[in-house]
Each structure stands twice: as C-alpha cells, then as structure tokens.
C-alpha cells in the first residue's frame, strides 16, 4: 500500500498529499438543487496543518466529508497520493465534534478499536500501541475506565488517541474542540500541537473559531457561504508551539476575522457574528 520511493526527477518536488481538483458538491432537496460547494481547488502538503474556517453553512463540513470519503463529489476529483478516494478508511481518520467513543468498550479498547482492522498485529501488540497513544494524551491511568466516567475534555483526548493509533496519514478534524468549555479547550491546544508535531501528521482542521484557526494552522483557508467556496488562503508564519492567548496569535486571527466579516451583508450582521467569534 505505502510506496514512498520515487524514481522520477520530480521526486525532488514532493507531491501534495491531498489534491482537490475542481470539486463541486450539490444536493437535491425539496427546494431544488442546492450548491453546497462551488468548484474548489485545494492542495495539502505532507505534514501540513491546514485549517478551514468559515461561517456555518459554508460547506466546510461538506469539504471534510468529501475528503473523508463519507460523501462523493458531484464533479471533480479528490486525490490522495495521486489516487482517487473511494470511501472512508483509516488512512484518513476523522475526529468529530462529539468524541463518538463507543460506550460498550473500555477506554483502552476504544483506542485499540481501529487497530483491530489492521493486519499483522496481535492483541498484545495492539494493546501496547494503544497504551502508547493513551499515555501521549496523558490518560494512561484511565485505560480500564468506562467512557461514562470521563469528562468531556478527557473523552476528546481519548478520541484523539483512538484516531492516532491506526497511524493515519491524514487526520481530519471537524470542530473537535467546539463542544468543550473554554478553559478545557485552551488547555488542550498546546498538548495537541505537541502531539501533532511528534506524530508528524497531515491535518485538515475545520472550525468557525478564528483564533483557534490562527493558533493551530500553518495555512488557513477562509470559506464563504451560500454557495460555499474558498475565498482566500493565508499563511500563518509563527513559531510553534503557539500559546492560544498570546498577542502574536491575535494579528492573523484579526485578519481572518476581517476576511470573514467582509462577506456579511451589513454592519449589524457583522457585529453579531463577530461576537460569536
């Protein structure tokens, strides 16, 4: 499956991990065809942290679902390492807004779950791998706990461990911190950046929080709604790890915010959304 050796001279220029070429998505609804996504082109490099930010209904989750393979584009193609994406799979694991842990399994068994479908690992090896990732999110001593005994932040950390354990090449994250309270969330950003740096993942991270986008992203794609499209991409060139509340993060955050608000029909609406951010 994994072929990394390149014979062509083009090997010097690394191929993008993920390519979206003229991808569109339209849904048939009772009110006719709704265009969720206008033709979109996007390239994501290996080990890049791409944040997709936009208002609700801008098609950012649609975009993520297309990459995840939960949904298929109406036209255009989604390529990973040059191959079209056919369906969901653990080379592109998704983390959701809710932890979506399985309550019938213990914490450790949840983290081991995705490893079950990888060949060549026996139970003891699966447990070792899972334990390693559980330690990474500092929840090693909760291995034998039940899911309902964990707090929201702990659940989301277990979900991260579960997503990392099968060693996906791309991690797709759909507002994974949005359901957590601010204090828990801000505590997680540093830990999360460390883990992503240590495990060298390519990440596509969807959010509507501009500060979160500025704090986490190497690159931020700003989307606008109705119909959804990527209107601008910004590079965030700040040293890591970034502190969520430091002032240098506010500069790009403000820029992303301006970009988003430029879309809104009038000042009044603009202020309303600005407060949400």
């Amino acid at each position: 499956m994994i072929k990394t050796e390149d014979h062509s001279p083009a090997a010097a220029m690394p191929l993008p991990k993920l390519v979206l070429r003229e991808v569109t998505k339209a849904y048939n609804t009772r009110h006719g065809i709704v265009e969720a996504l206008l033709p979109t082109n996007l390239e994501v490099k290996k080990n890049e942290f791409l944040v997709i930010v936009g208002p609700s209904g801008c098609g950012k989750t649609t975009l993520l679902n297309l990459i995840a393979g939960f949904d298929h584009p109406t036209s255009g193609e989604v390529l990973m390492d040059g191959h079209p994406i056919k369906g969901p799979g653990f080379d592109r694991l998704v983390m959701f807004q809710e932890a979506a842990l399985f309550p019938w399994l213990k914490v450790i068994d949840n983290v081991m779950y995705g490893l079950k479908w990888k060949k060549g690992l026996n139970r003891a090896e699966r447990r070792d791998v899972a334990m390693c990732f559980l330690e990474m999110v500092h929840l090693g001593r909760f291995a034998d706990a039940s899911i309902h005994e964990l707090s929201g932040g702990m659940k989301q950390r277990v979900a991260l461990a579960r997503a990392l354990a099968p060693n996906p090449r791309v991690l797709l994250m759909d507002e994974p911190f949005a359901a957590l309270d601010a204090l828990t969330r801000e505590g997680l950003y540093l830990q999360f950046q460390e883990i992503i740096a240590a495990t060298k993942k390519t990440v596509i991270f969807v959010t509507h929080n501009v500060r979160e986008a500025a704090c986490l992203g190497d690159r931020v794609a700003v989307m606008s709604a109705c119909p959804g499209r990527i209107k601008r991409e910004l590079m965030i060139d700040l040293p890591r790890p970034r502190q969520f509340n430091r002032t240098e993060v506010s500069v790009p955050a403000a820029e992303i915010g301006r970009e988003l608000h430029a879309d809104l029909p009038d000042e009044e609406g603009g202020r309303g959304v600005a407060e949400e951010f």
Partner: peptide
Amino acid sequence: LYLRAAKTLGTPRWAMGYQV
C-alpha cells in the same frame, strides 16, 4: 455518529453488525 466513527476507523461492512 457511532456508525460514522466505526466507518472512519476502518470497520469492514461484515463486522458492523456485531461490532457496532
């Protein structure tokens, strides 16, 4: 969400019934 999580974690179709 359970079904989506199971799919993204690579659960084969034949195992969905008893696993999830």
